[in-house]
Design a binder for these strands. Structure first.
Lengths: 156, 156
DNA sequence: GGTTTAATGTTATAATATTGCATTAACCGA
DNA sequence: TCGGTTAATGCAATATTATAACATTAAACC
């Protein structure tokens, strides 16, 4: 990422959306939770829980512990504000909480950016395949690993 | 699973396929690797590495250690004989090594069976979405969690 | 204000996975 | 078939990710 996009805008938008969504649902975006969300949105690269733990400990004088982070993560997942990338054991902000909340990602193995796919085609294909087997979907995760446009451009 | 399917046949087929594929590729399906593969094929439910470790230790007198299991798993993954289900930290046999090796699964949260989807629609949709963003795919993982036909029939 | 519930702090530990190095087994050319 | 080379396994330690259990503090609400 970093090219032709103002990332502060991403962060601001995400935080505004999060505040709105939480107030709407009567959920409390406490300081810790907001901190974790901000740290996740610091980039478009999925971040591990223990990295968040380090950053969180760095920004407040008090040393945080794993449960603090995991509880905040659980909350953010419940509210649909972040996604967990299972193949990386890492977390990334959700661009569009609410919108079906699909969780389909392109993950670049070079720059590590995880781009959420908002195209409907994949979800539709999955639903139709599942229906053919009378399978009722709870959640779907699609994690596509490869190389993004930008990194493919680099010589390697 | 277990209903209307002879599972011994699954195991035998899988082992035969594995032997064939390995000899074809000049890879060695050693006793440990074959044992692990057999243990994975003992059911259609993804199995964790430490469960495999237990079973392996049980069947030979000698107590095995994690690297033994993980090395065998790495080998089997490389040969395309098994899949890793990231959302479960578990491993399951591949029905059709060779065939694009997609790794698309329906995972029933009740019976835990993981059924590989061999329909092409999903892969095609993913490829087209990736192409639109000039993303080059290395590997794709699709993990759909929900309830299978059989378990939906049960009252719960 | 006092009660209830939600959130956080704290310690310990579980579950999953890897590193590094020693040893043994298989392969392969002479 | 011997000896050298590579691949596979044994083994001990440790890294990484995640959770359990219980105490304490803060917020919400009447």
């Amino acid at each position: 990422m970093s090219l032709n996009h103002n990332h502060q805008r991403c962060i601001d938008d995400a935080m505004a959306m999060a505040r709105h969504r939480c107030s709407e649902r009567g959920a409390r975006l406490t300081p810790i939770r907001a901190d974790i969300l901000k740290l996740i949105w610091a980039s478009h690269q999925p971040v591990g829980a223990y990295d968040l733990l380090e950053s969180l400990s760095a920004r407040s004088e008090r040393r945080s512990t794993p449960p603090t982070v995991y509880r905040a993560l659980d909350f953010l997942l419940e509210q649909g504000l972040i996604h967990r990338i299972a193949s990386l054991n890492a977390f990334v902000g959700c661009n569009d909480p609410g919108h079906g909340h699909s969780g389909h990602f392109l993950i670049c193995k070079d720059c590590n950016n995880a781009t959420e796919l908002l195209a409907d085609g994949i979800g539709t294909a999955i639903q139709s395949a599942a229906r053919q087997q009378d399978f009722t979907i709870d959640s779907q995760s699609v994690e596509i690993v490869g190389r993004c446009k930008h990194c493919a451009g680099q010589n390697d």
